[in-house]
Design a protein around this nucleic acid. Structure first.
Length: 713
RNA sequence: GCGCGUAUAGCUCAGUGGUAGAGCGCUUCGUUGACAUCGAAGAGGUCCCAAGUUCGAUCCUUGGUACGCGCACCA
């Protein structure tokens, strides 16, 4: 006779049901948790994923770590609160919606700001919950009743009030400066939003009168307003402060006939110039290079713009006007060669600035933008970490943090986008540069006393609003309970972009650092060691893993590989191990239940049974040791180590030895011990593998049992 | 350029100043009572290289090499 097939544990049948059970219980919400006697807040902020995002391995790693901490603390009796939310992600979202409209043949500009924003909002309504749903699939026990969006009315109000606050304090100003301009997104970017890409290019040596200048960007030469040398450079000392006459490329006349023209250029001495580089002479092009702009400010040099906002040569470039920058470079080099001003061309490895969102070239351009003065705030942010009010784990990231803060420039906070928090700035219609800063629209202009001022078209940098994440949009009572939070777990690439800014914002507005610990987890890489990315085809979708192996197995697989804060070369075999392990727990339970008298029920407050038999004594001792080890590891954020300990105990001590012994020595004592160890194991495993443990727990013959999720640790 | 990290089994990684470990994979054997998503047994390692400290180094020190990452205004 054929043996009936046994059914292994099937996560698909269990997970959704269990998540609903948790949601229905309300214990994700600390208000409800309070009724169980929980008092001491333990708060984690979910780094708000972009509204455009969908769950990737980084999110999954981050969320699993946070969920382990939150579930552990909840079981330990803390008032555990995991506050989720979504970031409006200015540039990213605007791009997505623009693309979508373009496919339908709709142009953003034709549509107009108001209608475009309507489109973005409806896109948000449609997509805004996707990532929350994916986090739920992973088992994340966030307090969804407090789900925030960075453009919720209250959140937006807090953002605008922050702007007004800083402006009143004199920390926000408007100014014309050369800033990073993305020619595709058509907006300014902060220094932190610029990334660099290695590119082979050329270093051109060009004749400038008595000098030779080495540059990678000959096409910007029409915007030169000086030459700069190091004040210490003996070769050039005599020229400093003088005007020299040079021969250069003319911008007028026939494009086909390059010719020379004479012009005068001032020579300045500036310490920013490295005498060792190139020829030691720098052409100062204030409009198209940020360093050059700074030099121009120190020496009071004029700014001549020759490239426009589309990345094309502008009027200042004369006959080259309208050419794309790359084209112009080729042509200018050709022309310089033709008139014997190009000395040589050397291959050169160069790092080109690109937009962190769209990856296209950044063009430094002069533009009127809003800036935040950073010197004082940076000092505050550094102090907090120096004094260990906030501890960054691992410690070596502190170095980068400090070096960023020590060399910081003012933060460009305005963006030329439509999607975001529109600046609470109102311009007088009769005086271009006069404005009023106010959250509400002023009824009458206080400058000209006549007009109805018009709001600035700009919006704020997304990171300006994310900087307020630890408290913005929360009501007063919640702020009191949930600020400051406990641990922030996040990826290393946003330490400065986000974490540092949250720290000084927290001090500015709440007088306390927003979190005592920042845990920087590793990065999950492809097995090849490459970065996981969709475009490289190296990405792994955690949802595929969940569908194939179950959420518990996926979490197991991630945590199994998370040893401390090391990067992870992703290996799916760990998820396979996780699936086997969930099944092992499932089957061990079936065995234990078979050992127990069917009519017997246990008190939910199970006491440690007395053991006389050696193997029973032994397993109880091993359990205690494992508990201690797991507890210690979780406290130290060593999630992988904790999971390995539990695995070793459950599989190799409990199942391989203890259960086998029990087969040959059945007794009342043994079954009591087996049952006790099982229940304790479920508790230990729950933060790591919440679904299967809860499902089993619910099936146990326990009187007055509640949820494993809130079972006392 | 400066800073940081990593190098241990076929793969992904733990670990320890004194016989080297796990998961996955592989080999052989084992299916009538928890589990074949299993059990038992096993193969598989110059612990990157060199020097130093030490009675003893995979571990500590120094110097290399390789790979990865971060920062910077070298035009």
């Amino acid at each position: 006779m054929a043996k009936p097939k046994k059914k292994p544990y099937n996560p698909a049948e269990v997970e959704e049901k269990i998540y609903k059970l948790w949601m229905k219980s309300g214990y994700f919400n600390p208000d409800k948790l309070k009724k169980t006697g929980a008092k001491k807040p333990f708060v984690i902020l979910l780094p708000p994923p972009n509204v455009t995002g969908s769950l990737h391995m980084g999110h999954a790693l981050n969320a699993t770590g946070s969920d382990i901490l939150i579930r552990w603390q909840r079981m330990k009796g803390s008032l555990a609160a995991w506050l989720p939310g979504i970031d409006h992600a200015g540039i990213a979202t605007q791009r997505v919606v623009e693309k979508k409209l373009r496919k339908k043949g709709i142009n953003k500009l034709e549509l107009g700001r108001e209608k475009f924003l309507k489109e973005v909002w409806s896109w948000k309504e449609e997509h805004g919950d996707i990532i929350s749903g994916q986090l739920k699939k992973l088992g994340a026990s966030c307090d969804w009743s407090r789900n925030r969006f960075t453009m919720d009315p209250q959140y937006s109000k807090d953002v605008l009030e922050t702007f007004v606050h800083y402006h009143k304090k004199g920390l926000i100003y408007r100014g014309l400066r050369t800033i990073n301009w993305c020619v595709r997104c058509h907006t300014s970017l902060s220094d932190l939003e610029v990334e660099y890409r290695e590119e082979g290019s050329s270093l051109y040596h060009i004749k400038y009168g008595p000098f030779v200048v080495a540059t990678t960007r000959p096409e910007t030469k029409f915007g030169d307003t000086a030459l700069a040398v190091s004040p210490k450079d003996k070769r050039y000392k005599k020229y400093i402060g003088k005007e020299i006459e040079i021969e250069t490329l003319a911008t007028d006349g026939d494009l086909a006939k390059p010719r020379k023209i004479k012009m005068k250029l001032k020579v300045v001495g500036d310490t920013a110039v490295d005498p060792e580089f190139g020829t030691g002479v720098l052409k100062v092009t204030p409009a198209h290079d940020i360093l050059d702009f700074e030099i121009s400010q120190r020496h009071d040099l004029p700014i001549v713009q020759v490239i426009d906002r589309r990345g094309k040569m502008s009027e200042g470039a004369g006959k080259y006007e309208g050419m794309k920058v790359d084209e112009a470079r080729k042509k200018v080099v050709e022309d310089l060669k033709a008139i014997d001003l190009l000395i040589k061309e050397k291959p050169y490895h160069h790092r080109t600035a690109v937009c962190y969102r769209c990856n296209s070239t950044i063009e430094p351009l002069p533009s009127k933008q809003w800036f935040m003065k950073m010197d004082k705030l940076a000092k505050v942010a550094a102090e907090i970490v120096k004094k260990k009010k906030t501890v960054i784990i691992p410690k070596n990231f502190e170095k980068g943090y400090f070096s960023w803060l020590n060399n910081i420039r003012d933060w460009c906070i305005s963006r030329q986008l439509w999607w975001g928090h529109q600046l609470p700035v109102w311009f007088c219609k009769n005086n271009e540069d006069e404005f009023i800063v106010s959250v509400k629209q002023p009824a009458k202009c206080s400058v000209c006393k006549k007009c109805k001022p018009q709001q600035s078209e700009d919006v704020l940098d997304t990171w300006f609003s994310s900087a307020l994440w630890p408290f913005a949009g929360l009501n007063k009572k919640d702020q009191k309970t949930f600020y400051p939070s406990s641990v922030l777990t996040t990826a290393r690439d946003i330490i400065n972009l986000w974490v540092g800014r949250m720290i000084f914002s927290g001090i500015e507005f709440k007088k306390k650092t927003p979190f005592s610990t920042v845990l920087i987890h590793g990065t999950i890489l492809a097995k090849s060691g490459q970065r996981m990315s969709k475009s490289l085809g190296t990405g792994i979708d955690p949802l595929d893993l969940i569908n194939q192996y179950g959420a518990d197995a996926t979490r197991f697989g991630i945590i199994w590989q998370s040893m401390g804060t090391q990067d992870i070369r992703w290996d799916e075999s760990a998820v396979v191990a996780g699936k086997k392990f969930t099944n092992k727990i499932w089957n061990a339970t079936r065995f234990v239940m078979g050992q127990i008298d069917k009519k017997e029920t246990f008190n939910a407050n199970l006491k440690k049974p007395r053991a006389t038999k050696p193997f029973n004594k032994k397993i109880l001792a091993q359990l205690e040791k494992t508990k201690k080890g797991v507890e210690k590891d979780i406290s130290n954020y060593q999630f992988g180590q904790a999971l390995h300990k539990f695995y070793e105990f459950f599989w190799h001590n409990y199942c391989d030895v203890c259960l086998e012994k029990a087969k040959n020595n059945p007794s009342k004592e043994t079954s009591k011990v087996l049952f006790y160890v099982l229940v304790e194991s479920l508790k230990l495993a729950h933060p790591f593998m919440p679904f299967v443990t809860e499902e089993i727990y619910q099936s146990l013959p326990l009187k007055d049992k509640k949820l494993l999720m809130i079972k006392k640790w």
